[in-house]
């Protein structure tokens, strides 16, 4: 069972800050939908509006047929929410936390064990440990278990992988993929752009507006700039040194072990000569400049730069 979510020109202001500016989008049943954006882009506010913790200043949100303002009681029954900050009881054990959340949804751990088996198995050896003493990754798995224990139709995860190590992040996403196969709609926000490619569709948010809304593949396809990848013997100072090149170079940003740059109307030879000359004068050797295949991060950075 899963539900769709319809967001209609939703607005929310906090004093003078416009957290969300007439944002509209539809999320299909059973979709794994990602919200990507820097801190302060409105992701958490949007999630709090969907879970009815906040009341919108304008527009409305429908979860299936339910309105987030008037039918919030019903929405809360079918929604699993994992806040960005670990919000379970530190002084209760793993097991006690789960039992408590199961019982307030009128169910039991035993009855719904199959729902959380994949996640819970990984922390079950520590079930007597207090939640506050768990590692970051384990805390997130416990929080996910608690959010799933009542068989929600909609799962909302606010930055579940923030502050979690790379291995646990990967595991966590694998769990989400598995979860999705059981037919649940999942909304997940993340500041990590590389996680975008794991979603069915993503919304790129900035300052309360949508910059892009599409599947990760389509977003990459739509990329129209020229992208170059380069490396040299001195990667520590390369960004600072490149920033003085100026002419024709638009963006410079680190990408893994390399540096990506975008340019306007220059071909590979032209870029090569400009860069090589500049870097050589700054004492760089082994300068390699080549065309790069755009990744989703490149698209996002490009979109964010444009706005």
């Amino acid at each position: 069972m899963s539900v769709s979510v319809h967001i209609n020109s939703i607005e929310k202001k906090f004093e003078k800050v416009e957290a969300l500016k007439k944002l509209s989008l539809n999320i299909e049943e059973g979709e794994l939908f990602g919200f990507i954006g820097p801190d302060g882009s409105g992701k958490t506010t949007l999630f709090r509006l969907i879970t009815s913790l906040l009341i919108p200043d304008g527009g409305n949100i429908k979860v299936g047929e339910l309105d987030s303002e008037t039918d919030f009681r019903e929405i809360r029954k079918i929604t699993g929410y994992m806040p960005g900050r670990f919000s379970l009881y530190h002084d209760l054990s793993v097991e006690e936390n789960l039992n408590f959340y199961a019982s307030i949804f009128n169910t039991t751990l035993k009855k719904n064990y199959h729902l959380i088996k994949d996640v819970y198995e990984q922390i079950e050896p520590f079930k007597k440990r207090k939640a506050g003493a768990l590692s970051g990754g384990m805390k997130q798995k416990l929080a996910l278990s608690c959010a799933l224990i009542h068989k929600p139709e909609l799962l909302i995860l606010d930055e579940p992988t923030t502050g979690v190590d790379a291995v646990s992040r990967k595991e966590f996403w694998e769990l989400l993929k598995k979860m999705q196969k059981t037919g649940i709609t999942i909304l997940v926000s993340t500041p990590y752009m590389d996680e975008a490619s794991l979603c069915d569709r993503v919304a790129l948010m900035q300052k309360g507006s949508l910059l892009a809304l599409d599947s990760p593949e389509n977003i990459v396809k739509k990329y129209d700039g020229d992208l170059w990848q380069l490396s040299s013997s001195n990667m520590h100072t390369i960004i600072a040194d490149l920033s003085e090149v100026g002419s024709g170079i638009k963006n410079i940003f680190r990408f893994g072990e390399k540096v990506h740059i975008t340019s306007n109307g220059l071909n590979l030879e032209e870029v090569k000569s400009v860069i090589t000359e500049e870097l050589k004068s700054k004492g760089h050797n082994n300068i390699i400049v080549e065309a790069a295949k755009p990744q989703i991060e490149d698209c996002f950075l490009d979109l964010m730069e444009e706005n």
Binding site: L53, R76, S87, H90, Y101, I104, C146
Partner: peptide, 13 residues
């Protein structure tokens, strides 16, 4: 302060 109220508030309690 601990933030636990946010998790409680989204339950049907």
């Amino acid at each position: 302060e601990m933030g636990t109220i946010e998790q409680i508030n989204v339950t049907p309690i």
